[in-house]
Design a protein around this nucleic acid. Structure first.
Length: 657
RNA sequence: GCCAACGUGGCUCAGAUGGUAGAGCAGCGCAUUCGUAAUGCGCAGGUCAGCGGUUCGAAUCCGCUCGUUGGCUCCA
């Protein structure tokens, strides 16, 4: 049906579209022209094209036989094209207002874009508003973007002539044979690989969000540049929805909610990154800890309890002294001839010393040591964040010492435990898996040689594949002593953190000379799996608060049930039922204060209590309670015997509602 | 550590251009025994994060320190 477009004497080409259909077009048409033929709405919303799987601009000519996909803002890659162009509009606006500013880089991100500038003065909020206004002007000007390429040397000359040293440096670092492309939009040109929109008008509604400092090329030795973050949407309405979502997400911020709900507090006299867990927070953590310790015991873990500190000599053997000293709190000054101790940042060396306290046969293996271990890490002052990034935290840390033959089965056992724990917490679908490898270009950061690293990483990859995990690999994220499987989660701001980690340690065991006697009578080095089975308890609590917006699963709350009397006459009745609940292991309090029932309920609701039981004269008479359940409101009158069963059952089943 | 913003009673916030602090909630007291998101009245509570400076005078201006928050990973 599209053949009408092709005249008799014109050459035709066949294009496969993303809906799978194959259609014929005039040879030499661009993606944009095809979109116009295809569908008016698509044409209007088109932002970029994907030709044979390669994202590119709409003005690109589609070759015969190609697969073509027209991208809109709905597509992830379409969004990126919009945001990337928005970053150019931002740079153009800044250049117009502040001609002396030097440009660094400006990519799209997962939720918008940023651009790094070298400026004499940081941008103020007023400047930001002014820049945003200029951006809107540029968008209204409907400037078209054109791509052109230059030979390497010419490109460098051009950037030097334009007094853009950062751009020149970028080109110099590109490979010799790289195509150097530029995008021009009116009075502004930027070095860029693209792809971009056809016109600034398609950026539609931009919004600048905040400024931040960022080192040139992410290296703290380099100059700090001024970064502007922003985003853009096709309509004001969509932008408003996004901003509202951002605000709502921040309402769940554990750092706000956790303080409001009295889970934790901080105090300047105590120090940064040292949160104080209040009774509610401490209780929840105790519940989680008991759950994990019991579960590990069932799975054959042996409990250890090791010191919080050790002589520097221990860390010299383990390699921490060389590779991790910046992260440790060191006590005592060697210069003054004092004994030098350091607080432990990890438990490994301690549990290894327990293993080394005796001789081991292959028949003893695997040995699984577990410890609820408090660790100390001297994080940089700007890194601390609520309960997520702290200087002292407690972890269920364990080490499994096994033979090479047992490694895979033990690793699977660890994964099984972790998955079980995550399921109980209700977070199994909120995490993703990262295979963290060493960085072969930065060997000094690690113990061991390249061959060992590659061998262990290959072994780990095989296990991960056997486990059927959907993971991604990342270089430079390994521990200094071995590769890791990191289980990652994101907080309300979208920031990623490691919740749980499983590592294969091949280096430390060797440092400590750990051995076992095999069936052939030979001493051999065991394999060690280093793992946590739940995140640090502080971090896990933070995640629970954010995931459930403070309404934690009932079984992990310090107060599951609150009973409220309407008049003094119901006091005894309420107390008696509370006692019955307590005998069944339910954490319950009674509110017999002389307040109106509406007031008591409001307070209990604000505290996210799971069950609110109300009793007045009629309930006392009937032997019932008027029951209110979190998130559901009043669910009716229930006889106290039935109510007891119901609550106990939910507590035991760890029902999440 | 670096960049930026912020720091007023337990909490949430008001206090233009400098003249020596104000509200609501929470707390305490009294009264109220009350039916599902705030009963009324009263009282008390702050060296305005800390230190130093400018000034006749600083919560307000400047500097330093401490703390809180966001960013410093997304590669032209």
């Amino acid at each position: 049906m599209y053949k009408y477009f092709i005249k008799e004497d014109e050459k035709a080409m066949k294009i496969k579209l993303n809906d799978g259909s194959v259609k014929e077009y005039k040879d030499g048409m661009t993606a944009l022209e095809i979109a116009k033929e295809l569908n008016q709405k698509l044409y209007k919303n088109a932002v970029a094209a994907k030709i044979d799987g390669q994202v590119t601009e709409l003005t690109k000519t589609v070759p015969d036989g190609a697969t073509l996909e027209i991208l809109t803002f709905e597509d992830e890659e379409g969004k990126k094209a919009v945001w990337h162009t928005a970053s150019h509009v931002l740079a153009q606006a800044v250049k117009r207002l502040y001609p002396d500013v030097k440009l660094a880089i400006g990519p799209a991100t997962d939720s918008g874009f940023y651009y790094d500038f070298d400026t004499a003065e940081p941008f103020t909020n007023e400047a930001l508003a002014k820049i945003e206004k200029e951006m809107k002007k540029i968008i209204a000007e409907n400037i078209s973007l054109t791509r052109y390429t230059l030979p390497r040397q010419e490109a460098i000359e051009k950037m030097k002539a334009a007094d853009e040293p950062y751009k020149a440096e970028l080109i110099e670092d590109l490979p010799e044979d790289a195509v150097i492309s530029f995008y021009e939009q009116g009075d502004f040109t930027d070095l860029c690989a693209g792809p971009h929109l056809v016109s600034t008008a398609k950026v539609k509604v931009p919004k600048l969000l905040r400024t931040a400092g960022a080192y040139w090329r992410g290296d703290e030795k380099n100059k700090m540049l001024n970064r502007i973050y922003g985003t853009a949407f096709p309509t004001q309405q969509e932008l408003d929805i996004y901003l509202k979502q951002l605000k709502e997400a921040e309402e769940r911020d554990h750092n706000k909610l956790g303080r409001e709900l009295n889970y934790f507090t901080t105090n300047p006299l105590v120090g940064q990154g040292l949160p104080l867990l209040m009774p509610k927070g401490a209780k929840t953590i105790q519940i989680l800890q008991r759950f994990v310790e019991d579960e590990e015991e069932k799975r054959g873990y042996l409990l250890t309890k090791t010191p919080f500190m050790a002589k520097s000599d221990l860390y010299k053997v383990s390699g921490h002294w060389e590779h991790y000293q910046d992260g440790m709190f060191v006590l005592g000054d060697e210069e003054k001839d004092e004994e030098v101790l350091a607080l432990r940042p990890m438990t490994c060396p301690f549990q290894y010393m327990i293993y080394n306290a005796g001789h081991h046969s292959y028949k003893d293996l695997p040995i699984r040591y577990g410890e609820t271990s408090t660790l100390f890490r001297n994080e940089a002052s700007g890194e601390m964040h609520g309960l997520i990034r702290v200087r002292q935290f407690t972890l269920s840390e364990g080490h499994i010492i096994c033979t090479p033959e047992q490694l895979e089965a033990e690793f699977m056992g660890v994964l099984d435990l972790i998955k079980y724990n995550m399921k109980v917490l209700g977070i199994e679908n909120d995490v993703f898996y990262r295979f963290s490898k060493w960085d072969p270009n930065d060997k000094d950061k690690y113990i061991g040689n390249a061959e060992e690293w590659e061998r262990v990483q290959d072994a780990m990859r095989v296990i991960l594949d056997h486990a059927g995990l959907d993971y991604y690999e990342k270089e430079g994220e390994a521990a200094f002593y071995g590769p890791k499987l990191d289980i990652q989660s994101k907080n309300v701001f979208g920031k990623e953190d490691t919740l749980i980690t499983v590592q294969i340690d091949f280096a430390l065991s060797k440092q400590f000379g750990m051995t076992y006697v095999d069936s052939d009578g030979q001493k051999k080095s065991p394999y060690i799996i280093h793992r946590s089975s739940i995140g640090s308890y502080e971090r896990t609590l933070a995640m629970m608060i954010e995931k459930y917006a403070g309404a934690l699963p009932m079984w992990m709350m310090s107060e599951e049930v609150r009973i409220m009397s309407i008049t003094d006459a119901a006091e005894e009745y309420c107390n008696a039922f509370a006692e019955r609940l307590r005998e069944s292991g339910i954490r319950v309090t009674v509110d017999n204060r002389q307040e109106k029932i509406g007031y008591k309920i409001r307070e209990a609701r604000n505290e996210r209590i799971a069950y609110m039981l109300v009793a007045g004269a009629s309930e006392v008479e009937d032997g019932t309670f008027a029951v209110r359940r979190r998130g559901e409101g009043e669910i009716g009158s229930i006889a106290s015997d039935d109510l007891l069963d119901m609550i106990v059952q939910q507590h035991k089943d760890r029902v999440i509602f």
